[in-house]
């Protein structure tokens, strides 16, 4: 239960609202000439955090459009996270909810923002315990151990491949594997085909490569298991070299 009087709460609310919107309120006993410092300081923290998280979108959008978007976000949205570095996720969610890409006629905007957020998220996300694994095993019939610190996502636009200025008219199915290297903590990105995305997803779900390929051969109507196997093994070996596939799950 709050011990604050309504009048005190009201003064606090008015100052906070002013910092969000810039609309000057009626406040009691203030130094009017200094009030704007609060709006400036609050807004600068917000805008710096968002611009740092979304450098590609920031550079791509014209200044006046970007400024208006950030201004509206700050005025309309109630930031929920106490951790300011997580706040850009709320900016992305706000843009999706308000259909900013529709209003701006930029159908790739959600994908672009999400790609930029994802890079930050994968870089900073909490450590996930690595599975116990052996380095020797049967690639086809043993369960594969994968780096758990990764995201496999589908985009409608190839935001991870092309510059923002080249995305128009490129709608399709694009898959991105993004993972964090264990030792360096660096984030690596890899464009993968829908077939390989399926294979990775099923391995992640606990199937052997042999089982996945058997399913994939019919699902994708390849009807050439040996060729599929050869390509898939090359792909898996590449991921082993990149240390995304760690080895063979030790059960």
């Amino acid at each position: 239960m709050s011990l604050l009087k309504e009048s005190t709460h009201e003064q606090q609310s008015k100052l906070a609202e002013y910092c969000k919107t810039g609309i000057v309120p009626e406040l009691t006993g203030i130094l009017e000439e200094n009030l704007h410092h609060y709006r400036r300081l609050v807004f600068n923290i917000g805008i710096d955090t968002i611009e740092t998280a979304y450098p590609i979108t920031y550079r791509f959008l014209p200044d006046e459009i970007w400024d208006k978007l950030v201004y509206e976000f700050y005025a309309e949205h109630k930031c929920q996270t106490p951790q300011v570095w997580r706040m850009p996720l709320e900016f992305y969610e706000y843009c999706v909810e308000k259909d900013i890409q529709g209003k701006m006629n930029l159908p790739f905007l959600n994908d672009l923002l999400y790609f930029e957020w994802l890079e930050l998220e994968v870089h900073t996300m909490d450590d996930i315990p690595y599975p116990s694994f052996d380095t020797e095993g049967d690639l086809l019939n043993n369960l594969l151990a994968i780096n758990p610190e990764h995201k496999l996502v589908k985009f409608t636009y190839p935001v991870h491949i092309l510059a923002a200025t080249e995305l128009e008219g490129k709608a399709g199915n694009y898959f991105l594997l993004m993972y964090r290297e264990k030792e360096s903590g660096k984030v690596q990105c890899m464009d993968v085909s829908i077939l390989y995305a399926y294979i990775l997803e099923q391995i992640q779900n606990g199937l052997t490569l042999q089982a996945v390929l058997t399913d994939a051969d019919s699902l994708f109507q390849i009807n050439n298991f040996e060729m599929l196997k050869e390509h898939a093994i090359n792909f898996i070996n590449d991921l082993k070299q990149r240390q995304f596939i760690l080895g063979f799950l030790n059960k």
Partner: peptide, 12 residues
């Protein structure tokens, strides 16, 4: 924070 919105700065 005020009225369910974080502001990430220190208000008096």
């Amino acid at each position: 924070k005020c009225d369910n919105a974080h502001l990430y700065d220190l208000l008096p």
